[in-house]
Simulated assay, not measured.
Amino acid sequence: MTTIEVEQREPQPVLSIRQTVPIVELTQAQGASLYELWRLLHDRGVAPTGPPFVRYHAFGDVETDVETGVPVGDAVAGAGRISQGELPGGRAVTTVHLGAHDRLGDAYDRIQEWLATHGRPAGPAWEVYEWIDLTREPDLSSWPAPADWRTQLLQPVA
């Protein structure tokens, strides 16, 4: 999938955990965050309105400022490390990556090429992990093989 699409988005209420973590601990930190988000949703009887997302606010050589979240239908109060928030509305470009994340950079490159001639970023991009269903307890063994992962990338644009 190499298509870039432009869409107009409405603001989306979310619950999320934002943290700075060492790059080497990123996978474990995201897994723990997904579980905490699922637990809060489950305990409160709240259904997510879509798959979880990850938004990198800053990505360095050693650590990253990362937000792991889930969209919800209405504003839901957070608890502990979980905060109530919102993914921005407005114009965004989007593309889809199929497969393991070792080639996810190709999708980011497509977005950067589009931005070079059509616009500029208006905030950090986010990745939507379409293969993860937080209506059920997160379980790596139930996920499809990485070759079958479908990840949507969204980049707000000015």
Rank of each mutant, 00 (worst) to 15 (best):
W143C: 00
A145L: 12
R136M: 06
H101E: 02
H57I: 04
L154D: 01
D148K: 11
A75Q: 06
E10W: 02
G119I: 01
L26M: 13
L40V: 02
W126S: 00
E137R: 15
Q8R: 09
T68F: 06
E63I: 01
D102R: 12
Y108L: 01
T49Y: 05
A125P: 03
G69R: 07
F53M: 11
V14G: 15
Y35S: 05
L154S: 10
G31S: 05
A125S: 14
V93W: 12
E113A: 11
R110V: 06
R9Q: 12
H42A: 14
H97I: 09
V93R: 10
L104E: 08
A125L: 11
L37G: 08
A32Q: 13
T2P: 00
E63F: 05
T117Q: 05
Q84C: 15
A58G: 12
S83E: 15
W114T: 00
A147T: 06
E67G: 03
A92I: 01
L15I: 02
Y35T: 03
I23N: 15
A75E: 08
A125E: 04
R91H: 13
Q84E: 15
P22L: 14
R110A: 11
D74W: 07
E7C: 09
A77N: 13
P51K: 01
R18N: 09
I23Q: 13
F59N: 07
R9L: 14
D109T: 06
T3Q: 14
E10C: 00
E137K: 15
P13W: 00
L115P: 05
T49W: 05
E7T: 09
G123Q: 06
T64P: 01
R55I: 04
G73C: 10
R81N: 11
R136G: 06
P146M: 08
P146L: 10
S33Y: 06
H118R: 02
V76Y: 11
E113C: 09
T27S: 15
W143A: 00
E36N: 11
P71H: 00
R18E: 04
G78K: 11
V93P: 00
T117D: 07
R9V: 09
P13H: 05
L15G: 02
T20K: 11
L140P: 07
S33R: 04
Y108T: 02
L104A: 09
L15F: 01
T68D: 05
V72A: 01
D106W: 02
E67P: 08
L37A: 06
D65Y: 09
A32M: 08
D109H: 09
T20F: 02
T68E: 07
D74G: 09
A125G: 03
P13R: 00
V6W: 03
G60S: 15
A158T: 05
E127M: 04
G105W: 14
S33T: 01
Q12A: 08
A79R: 13
S33V: 00
S16F: 15
A122Y: 08
G105A: 13
T68K: 05
P48A: 03
G89H: 09
Q84F: 13
Q12E: 12
T135S: 15
V157H: 11
W149E: 00
E113Q: 10
P13Y: 03
P48H: 02
A116I: 06
E63Y: 02
D148C: 05
I17T: 07
F53T: 07
A79M: 10
V128H: 12
V6Y: 03
H57R: 12
R103A: 11
D139I: 03
A125H: 07
